[in-house]
Amino acid sequence: MIKIKLRFIVVYLILTLLALAFLIPFIWLVVESFSPLNNIGFTIPSTFTLAPFEHVLTNSTFIRSIYMGLIQSLGATFLSIIFAVGPAYVFSRKSFKFKTTLLLGVLLLTGFPVFSLLVPTFIFFIDTGLYNTVIGVILFLGVLNLPIDIWIMKNSFDQIPKSIERASIVDGAGTLKSLIYIFIPLSLPIMAVLIILNFVINWGNFYVPFILLSSSHLLPISVRIYSFFGAFSVRYNELAALSIIYTIPAVVLYIFAQKYMIKALSGGIKG
């Protein structure tokens, strides 16, 4: 009995220590963002202040970068979802000749090392005038999430029982009405989660705007933070405050959507 107790205490101890270790990197970020000093190293200041947040939130460059981040993330999210929903529906509901092959293709693109495509895309965008445009960034970010969106959506649609749609059709709804009254309302929660996920992924993406944009006024917050970090005479407390403002929405939304994504991701290829 005592042995079992001891074993449990050890488990709790290990996990608690692990969680504490996971918090270590956040210590500097939080302390520094409320600090009047600015320091890349770790010092506990004698007083805490909200000034870094104030400075950041009244600085038009930073506000603009938040705005650019929002536009680019939301635009790309919109594109991915719109282009994913039709194929996902057909993949889930119809059987046709090359279905498995096509699905495998989508799956391969899902795991594609997209970073390596930035060099050719950079050249392609310069050739076509899409380089250094917001629409270019949106188009490319949007296509990157398209395969995984099709995949997750298809798996989620598979969870909506077919017999429900069949029932509605026997009940007198045509294909279109069945879609409007039955399928779409049932898939709304999935869509909501997927929209959040897409937004967070795009919001967190750094390398796409970093490589495809050059004009300072187009840079989204992710790139802005990085250039701030790399600049001379950095106000680290403001950097930390800006990073916190950048991070909190992502973390909150992500935790919210996470559980669902795993379920959808681990679904296999069915029929």
Binding site: L18, A19, F22, L23, I24, P25, F26, I27, W28, L29, E32, N39, I40, G41, F42, T43, V200, W203, G204, F206, S222, I225, Y226, F229, Y236, L239, S243, Y246, T247, A250, V251, Y254, I255, Q258
Partner: peptide, 28 residues
């Protein structure tokens, strides 16, 4: 707690880790 790390945007993560491991001046 473990998930917060996974959800943190990588730019922030990179800066946090840089300062946490910093040598001069001493990081966390």
């Amino acid at each position: 707690i473990i998930l917060v790390a996974w959800a943190t945007p990588q730019v922030t993560a990179g800066i946090m880790w840089y300062s946490t491991l910093s040598y001069i001046p001493s990081g966390t």
